[in-house]
Design a protein around this nucleic acid. Structure first.
Lengths: 355, 355
DNA sequence: CTGTTAGCGCCTTCAT
DNA sequence: ATGAAGGCGCTAACAG
């Protein structure tokens, strides 16, 4: 019941600074080590002791100093996430869910925008690698052979790129294409166009292959247009070629492109879906607000963000546990890969072709 | 020319870890303190010494440990930035420019999305306050009286909210309204509608006052509609009331709302600008890609982001220099406020009314 | 201009 | 179950 608190807090260099572990320990009448234990692990602290500590903690409004903790543990509590374009609603949503998950684990998410540029992607990866506990790279333009050197420094997770040796969360691109094509087939379309995204995007290339194979096996006529930037503007640029192709059904690499396409088509006086059926991918918020509302394949964005953070967390843990010098016995742990599936959402931008 | 490097590096606990200041010092043949000085300040290091240090640095690929530095300096090198909605292109752009500026100063920007929620705003402010050197809050819903308690802990900068005692970067809202109204007047509109954003948004309230005053003094008929959420959907919801109001010119709180409005109007068969002229605010990328392209007031987004970071940087510096215990002599330093101006961009969504 | 000496606040063996 | 002691990597006085 002693009241040394004032003097103890006063022991800090200047009165205005925040309380430290030592202050808490003093107030609780235990050693700093005990406070640390009570706060970081459930282990090895008597219930009553813990309670005393905890109440001292909030009596003092104590919050641990992350830098000090980081210096000790070697972990900063910061996760990095690279996205090609923050303003793309798909990534915005991914960011939100990842952030929520990170926060739930008392971690913090550092976002960086690569502006769709390979150079920026590399640059940011390098400079972030040293400051974060782990890195999530969304829709990377670069593969592990370029980003690879950093693999050794920091756990890395890809979102939407399947690559040798890199743990990843990917949405099944083949399934997206199958659903889209199937839907158009159901509506009697025989001549399709595919608006391709950038060639260095795994998801776009993957779909391109699949749509080609599928068109072939199903006896569909197919025009591949592009590559275009995966943006509203990219979609707009695709409008003329799309019309020129004579296709009656278009599959765009993503919703934002599909929207750009439709905007331009409208300006050209081409009616959707009467003259042209359009399918997007992702189901961004604008997709259903548009006129006509866009048929698309809903991406499990929230799950993707959440699971990417989870996966990264596991990798970080594993890395921390790993014996320091020797490589782990024989087989290295298998590279984890999480596969997610999209879901077709039929709206007004598609309809039966009577050609 | 001695080659102790191997053994020196070996002095670290385990071979795989990164080199430290001490390793660099040893390789350069100087003391750790000198390396520190050479790296952090330009002062007080002989040119030749610095060169030796620098070459040792990159021979070893040394990069300082932020946590350790932070523990020593009390600064983490992390700046926080709260935005109401990442996917709003206005904030996306703000984030990009702020991030660039931060990076240029070797700082890192932590983004958090408050989802337009007061509760989240408060929550995030509190939890971030302890982990960052300073905080930028964009278009805050809460004023200093609510966020205030954290003011003491960490330098705070508002973007787009003028408030007692809080340094801020604000875009002149009165000027935006004046330009918009003036433009509509030039086109002979006498009956205007204003689509208001949320009531707790300073920028919206400010504009509301101004537009009222202006309508009054200019003898314009004015209908105030709303408040609506400052989103695409909010704008859509405003369509019917807008038409019902009988106004021929509409000023929307921002571009995203204006776009939502126009989308809905199109679906209703109301021609823009023939039946209704629409003015937005911000000039987000979609504004000029839309059909019809949106007349709007371009916000100096990049400047705002950059200057917010600059201003925050100055505050942090000042705080660090400040004598520790006593309050600074007499007058506290004046609260800095940076005023920026938008610029009218006339496009196709406005035209002369012949009513 | 440079080296020496102390910590920053926390976590973590090692004892007890 | 708890305490004591050392160190993480860096910077900041203070001497020289």
């Amino acid at each position: 019941m002693r009241e040394q608190r004032t003097s103890l807090l006063g022991s800090s260099k200047h009165g205005s600074s925040r309380p430290t572990l030592v202050d808490v320990a003093a107030l609780a009448g235990v050693s700093p080590a005990t406070v640390s234990r009570a706060l970081t692990r459930g282990d090895a602290v008597k219930r009553t002791t813990r309670r005393r500590v905890l109440s001292a903690v909030d009596a003092l409004d104590y919050r641990p100093n992350r830098a000090a903790r980081g210096l000790s543990t070697g972990r900063s509590g910061v996760l990095g996430m690279l996205v090609p374009d923050i303003s793309n609603p798909f990534f915005a949503e991914l960011i939100r869910s990842a952030q929520a998950e990170a926060r739930a684990h008392d971690q913090v998410l550092l976002i960086a925008d690569t502006a769709q540029s390979e150079a920026e992607e590399l640059d940011l990866t390098e400079s972030l690698a040293g400051q974060v506990d782990g890195l999530i790279v969304c829709s990377p333009r670069l593969g592990p052979e370029r980003l690879g050197p950093r693999l050794a420094e920091v756990p890395l997770v890809f979102v939407n790129r399947r690559a040798e040796g890199v743990p990843a969360v990917v949405i099944d691109q083949d399934a997206i294409v199958r659903m889209s094509v199937r839907h158009l087939q159901d509506f009697r379309h025989h001549h399709l166009a595919f608006l391709a995204g950038p060639e260095d995007l795994w998801s776009s290339e993957r779909r391109l292959e699949t749509v080609r194979a599928l068109a072939n096996s199903e006896g569909l006529e197919l025009d591949v247009l592009g590559p275009y930037e995966p943006s509203f503007e990219g979609g707009s640029q695709a409008a003329e070629p799309t019309v020129a192709s004579g296709a009656t059904g278009v599959i765009a690499f993503n919703d934002v492109m599909a929207l750009g396409l439709m905007a331009r088509l409208a300006a050209m006086g081409i009616a959707v879906p009467e003259k042209l059926s359009v399918v997007g991918s992702d189901d961004v918020p604008l997709a259903h607000m548009w006129t006509p509302a866009l048929t698309t394949v809903r991406a499990p964005t929230r799950a993707a963000g959440r699971r990417a953070v989870e996966l990264l967390g596991e990798l970080i843990e594993a890395g921390a546990r790993e014996p320091l010098d020797r490589t782990p016995p024989h087989e290295s742990p298998p590279v984890r890969r999480i596969e997610l599936e999209g879901q077709l959402v039929v709206r007004e931008s598609t309809s039966r072709a009577w050609a």
